[in-house]
Design a protein around this nucleic acid. Structure first.
Length: 460
DNA sequence: ATAGGGTTAG
């Protein structure tokens, strides 16, 4: 048998690109040639660094990602491009780790890489995602160290103003942008339009639509239309919303699944579900594939109508069409079932998720837990509670109060101890839980039992 | 993968 040749740097990059599993990709990166002489280490290409860092960042494997970054720092053969750091900063933003985003930003020059407004923009956006508005301000004030703010910078600031709910501030930034000679683009108008439509300020929104083309020469795109369509649906102007959809066609804008999902959602809310199917057919005819959100919208519609059979049919259709249901698809159904008192079905569905290839999330558990408490299925609730805490998901504290309250009303003094035990394991015993436990126990005047509660509380 | 739009729970 011929001995295999060692992997070349080029080959490593292709293999990394193909490897979907971040852990296996990391293993491959760390020892690409396990059977060869380690004295001749592989000379990693910049591309392979880029690939592994992005994979680890997307998978939130930040310690491993930092190790690779450290290794990259030692390389003297090349200087990494700024884009790598932009990506890392946005991974930290998505993971709600603002301090790490800032650290990364500050470390860039240590990699022999020039810092520009691009990484500053990445940082601004990461801080915005983390809700760190004061730090957004500080970063913006310091941006001139790296260059001058561009359209992207101002767009992020406008978005930040919208997020804190101040359209006035957003307009101020818009004016400032123009004063500085930076041209607003489609994203600028898309962001402003979104906020106007969210607040149902449709008159101003349509004025902005006129101005963006007439005054600024920017053509309204699908983002702008989607906001307007949703705004119109929000004030029950469905026919106007559909007229806008036709206008998109006339303006040769591609109708995408986002536009269609909005319309389908509106049709269901207006009790016109038959037409929703017509829209679904139209999508298919125009070659616009319904995606997970489109199907989720329909599932939600059917659940609101208590038509769970139809909801499950959509779920089957998704699987058939190769569109994978996500955790939201299931959470919607679990929530709908709980609301109707069908908690057995809800529980069965949750327990079936792993088999269906979907990991339940904190919403799945909270929904079922709240549903069980609402229907006074306390034993089941306590069981789910233990499971969710074991998985690291915290219940809402109001739900716990409701559960314990309900148990005492049923004179069940044993189960609260089990609940307390579960909460203790998750370090979730807060002051409210304390209060209600002692209060309820004392109310029942079962002093022996109340002292037992206190004992358990002291231990936890 | 420097910036904006659609579905759930609260």
């Amino acid at each position: 048998m011929k001995p295999p040749k060692p992997i070349s740097p080029f080959r490593l990059s292709s293999l990394l690109r193909l490897q979907k599993d971040p852990t296996l990709a990391l293993q491959l990166f760390r020892s690409p040639n396990p059977n060869f002489n380690p004295k001749k280490p592989l000379r990693y290409s910049l591309l392979s660094y880029d690939l592994i860092i992005s994979k680890l960042g997307r998978a939130k494997m930040f310690d491993e990602m930092e190790q690779i970054l450290h290794q990259l720092k030692q390389e003297t053969r090349f200087s990494p491009g700024e884009i790598i750091f932009c990506n890392v900063i946005s991974f930290y933003g998505r993971a709600k780790l603002p301090d790490r985003a800032i650290q990364t930003f500050e470390s860039i020059t240590g990699y022999r890489c020039k810092r520009t407004v691009k990484s500053a923009n990445s940082l601004l956006n990461a801080l915005l995602r983390c809700g760190e508005f004061e730090k957004v301000r500080e970063t913006f004030l310091g941006i001139y160290k790296d260059g001058t703010p561009d359209a992207c910078t101002y767009n992020i600031l406008i978005h930040a103003c919208c997020r804190i709910g101040s359209l006035d501030d957003a307009w101020n930034v818009f004016d400032e942008m123009k004063r500085r000679g930076v041209l607003p683009n489609a994203v600028t108008f898309g962001t402003l339009m979104y906020q106007l439509c969210m607040n149902l300020r449709l008159k101003e929104a349509f004025k902005l639509k006129e101005d963006m083309l007439g005054v600024y020469g920017v053509k309204p795109n699908a983002y702008v239309y989607t906001s307007l369509i949703r705004g119109l649906c929000g004030i029950d102007e469905l026919s106007s919303a559909f007229r806008l959809k036709e206008e998109m066609v006339r303006n040769e804008l591609k109708l995408d699944s986002v536009v269609y999902s909005s319309l389908i959602s509106a049709l269901f809310k207006a009790g016109r579900k038959e037409e929703a199917f017509g829209i679904l057919d139209e999508m298919k005819e125009l070659g616009c594939k319904p995606d997970t959100v489109t199907y989720n919208t329909m599932i939600n519609g059917f659940c609101k109508e208590k038509d769970f059979e139809a909801a499950f049919r959509i779920l089957d259709e998704m699987v058939e069409k190769g569109c994978k249901p996500d955790v939201i698809s299931y959470n919607v159904i679990i929530g709908g079932l709980c609301k109707e008192g069908k908690w057995i079905e809800a529980k069965d569905l949750l327990e079936d998720l792993p088999r269906r290839g979907c990991a339940p999330d904190v919403v799945s558990y909270r929904t079922l837990f709240d549903g069980l408490c609402h229907w006074k299925q306390f034993k089941e609730a306590a069981f789910i509670l233990e499971e969710m805490i074991f998985k690291g998901f915290a219940p809402r504290s109001a739900s716990i109060t409701k559960l314990v309250d309900g148990l005492f009303q049923e004179c069940n003094l044993e189960l609260p101890l089990t609940v307390l035990d579960s909460l203790g394991k998750g370090n979730l015993v807060d002051v409210d839980t304390w209060r209600i436990m002692v209060l309820m126990a004392c109310k029942k005047e079962k002093l022996s039992n109340s002292s037992k509660v206190v004992d358990t509380l002291v231990i936890t």
